[in-house]
Design a binder for these strands. Structure first.
Length: 246
DNA sequence: GTTGAGCGTT
């Protein structure tokens, strides 16, 4: 079993980290350990995995105890075919805590030199695993396939939508009406009344005061309710005459 | 079930 990476970084003070690139997504630390342990003392192997799916990211870190062994592994395993994939072994440049690595060895002392080595790709990191799905910056081949599939789905959806347009019409109309309503209201206040009157007949304050809705005498005390409804009425009744001189 | 430049965990 792989006890690597189970308890975090064990002791990286005197270890030499190697970066293994281009490994298969199914390759695990158990598969790399025997291969790398043959050339030296491997103290730790870590494979960055996806937080959600737990899948391998396609690269691994192998820490050796001695530099000469690490160098030997680089020379021997670089370009080796593992799991049907040609891996690339090289000394790690960056440390786990963004510390600089000197010749693959972790150096806690950060030199005051310029961080030119980080200009590789500081904008994108493996952290945005769920964001990379939405971005089509890399994996052009897959993007193309997905794009085609998306187009297909769009077409299908469009067709279905059309068929259902008769039933989905009210919703769309309602939504659009609301949007337009807001837009018109924002455009001009005076127009809002004209536009709001028709659909807002139910909410219209006039309707409440309208004699048509005369409450039955058996309803209780109409006077009391009238007062209650009239209380907030003045507020709405105030702007009844927006433009007397317009 | 897919992909493929790159730099890391408790």
């Amino acid at each position: 079993m792989s006890h690597f990476g189970r308890s975090g970084p064990p002791d990286i003070a005197d270890t030499y980290s190697l970066l293994i690139l281009n490994i298969s997504f199914r390759t695990s630390a158990d598969d790399l350990f025997p291969l790398f342990d043959k050339y030296g003392k491997v103290v730790d192997i870590f494979i960055p995995r996806d937080r959600r799916t737990g899948e391998s990211r396609g690269f691994a870190f192998v820490r050796y105890k001695y530099q000469d062994e690490a160098q030997k592994a680089v020379d021997k395993l670089d370009g080796e075919v593992v799991d049907g994939r040609e891996i690339a072994v090289q000394f790690a440049k960056y440390g786990p805590n963004a510390e600089r690595i000197h010749k693959g060895r972790v150096s806690e002392k950060v030199p005051r030199g310029r961080g030119r080595s980080r200009s590789r790709s500081p904008r994108r990191r493996y952290r945005d695993d769920y964001h990379r799905e939405h971005r089509r910056s890399r994996s052009r081949s897959r993007t193309r396939e997905m794009y085609e599939r998306d187009r297909h789905h769009e077409r299908k959806r469009g067709h279905r939508y059309r068929s259902r347009s008769y039933s989905a019409s009210p919703d769309h109309d309602r939504y659009r009406g609301r949007g337009r309503h807001v837009y018109e209201r924002r455009r001009s206040r005076s127009r809002s009344f004209e536009s709001a009157s028709p659909p807002r007949r139910r909410s219209s304050p006039y309707r409440s005061l309208s004699p048509r809705r005369t409450p039955s005498p058996r309803d209780g005390s109409p006077e009391k309710r009238s007062r209650h409804e009239q209380s907030p009425s003045p507020k709405s009744s105030k702007p009844v005459s927006p433009e007397p001189s317009y």
